[in-house]
C-alpha cells in the first residue's frame, strides 16, 4: 500500500503572532515552524498502514526551503521519501494554486491513499484537501477520525463524527482523506530515525519541473485575496461573583447572565 501524505509547515501554535506593517501578512522573523498538527495525524496513519500492508510512504510539501526540516521530521518518524515543491513564483499562492501544484507533483506517483490535514492551523482555510481530490479525480473523505482499509487493500471505510453520531463511508482506492484530531496519537521520531532521515530520498521540484505556469500561481494568481488581518479582540477582565452562600452566588450569577451577558 503506497500512501502519500501532504504536509504543510505552519508557525508553532505557541508562537506569538504579529501582523506585518502591510496589514495583510504576519511577521515571519523568529517564528518557530512546525509540521501542521493535522498533517502529523496523516503521517502517523500512513505509517500504520505501511506497517500493516507494506509499501511506501511519500511526503509531499510545498513552500520555501525551510519546509525541508518538517519533511525530514516525517522521514525521521518513518516515512520513506520526501518531495518539496519549491519555487519563488509560488510565494503567496492561495489554496487553489497550492492544490494544483500538489496535484501536478502527485498525479504520476503510484498511490492508494492520500492524507491531508483537514486544515492548516495557520490560515484555517481547509480547502486544499478537497481541491486536490478534485484535480486528481479521486473520492474524498473529510474530517476523518478512523480509517479502516479492507484486508485485501482494495477499499477503505472512513469514520466522520457528525453531531454526536458517526457517519461511516466507504470507497474504492485510490482515495483522499483529510484528517481530524482523534484519528491517532502521532509517534515521536526515534533517534535512529533522526540519524537516518538525511539519507532518505528527497527531491525538490520547481514549477518548470511540474509544467506549471508561474502566472497562475503565487500572489498574482490568487483567486482569494487577503484584504486585512486583525488581531483577536482583547479578552475583557473576568468577574468574580460575590456572595456569602452558594445560593446567593447562584442568584447573582443568574442575574448577571440575564442582565449583563443577556444569554437568556
Amino acid at each position: 500500500m503506497n500512501v502519500i501524505v501532504c504536509l504543510k509547515q505552519v508557525p508553532d501554535t505557541e508562537t506569538q503572532i504579529k501582523i506585518a506593517p502591510d496589514g495583510k501578512s504576519i511577521v515571519t522573523d523568529d517564528i518557530k515552524w512546525v509540521m501542521n498538527p493535522y498533517d502529523e495525524y496523516g503521517v502517523e496513519e500512513a505509517l500504520r498502514l505501511k506497517e500493516k500492508f507494506g509499501g511506501e510512504v511519500t511526503v509531499v510539501s510545498l513552500g520555501p526551503k525551510r519546509v525541508t526540516e518538517s519533511i525530514r521530521t516525517a522521514l525521521a518518524m518513518g516515512a520513506d521519501k520526501g518531495i518539496l515543491i519549491s519555487d519563488d513564483a509560488l510565494e503567496g499562492s492561495d489554496s487553489l494554486a497550492t492544490a494544483k501544484a500538489l496535484a501536478a507533483a502527485i498525479k504520476d506517483l503510484d498511490y492508494d491513499l492520500i492524507f491531508t490535514g483537514q486544515r492548516g492551523v495557520d490560515d484555517d482555510m481547509g480547502v486544499v484537501g478537497a481541491s486536490l481530490a478534485e484535480f486528481l479525480d479521486v473520492p474524498q473523505f473529510s474530517v476523518i477520525v478512523k480509517v479502516e482499509v479492507a484486508e485485501d487493500g482494495k477499499s477503505v471505510k472512513a469514520h466522520r463524527p457528525v453531531e454526536g453520531q458517526v457517519l461511516v463511508v466507504e470507497s474504492s482506492l485510490p482515495a483522499l482523506i483529510t484528517t481530524q484530531k482523534g484519528l491517532n496519537e502521532p509517534r515521536y521520531a526515534t533517534l535512529p530515525g533522526i540519524m537516518k532521515a538525511k539519507k532518505k530520498p528527497f527531491e525538490e521540484k520547481t514549477l518548470a519541473d511540474l509544467g506549471l505556469d508561474p502566472a497562475k500561481v503565487g500572489e498574482g494568481g490568487r483567486k482569494v485575496k487577503i484584504l486585512e488581518l486583525t488581531p483577536p479582540p482583547k479578552r475583557g477582565e473576568g468577574k468574580i461573583i460575590e456572595g456569602e452562600t452558594p445560593q446567593e452566588k447562584a442568584a447573582e450569577l443568574a442575574k448577571l447572565l440575564h442582565e449583563e451577558a443577556k444569554v437568556f
Binding site: T68, E69, R72, T73, A76, Y188, A189, L191, I194, M195, A197, K198
Partner: peptide, 10 residues
Amino acid sequence: TEEHKMIRDM
C-alpha cells in the same frame, strides 16, 4: 545541524 534540532525538538 538538522539532526541536532530534530533531537532537541523530539
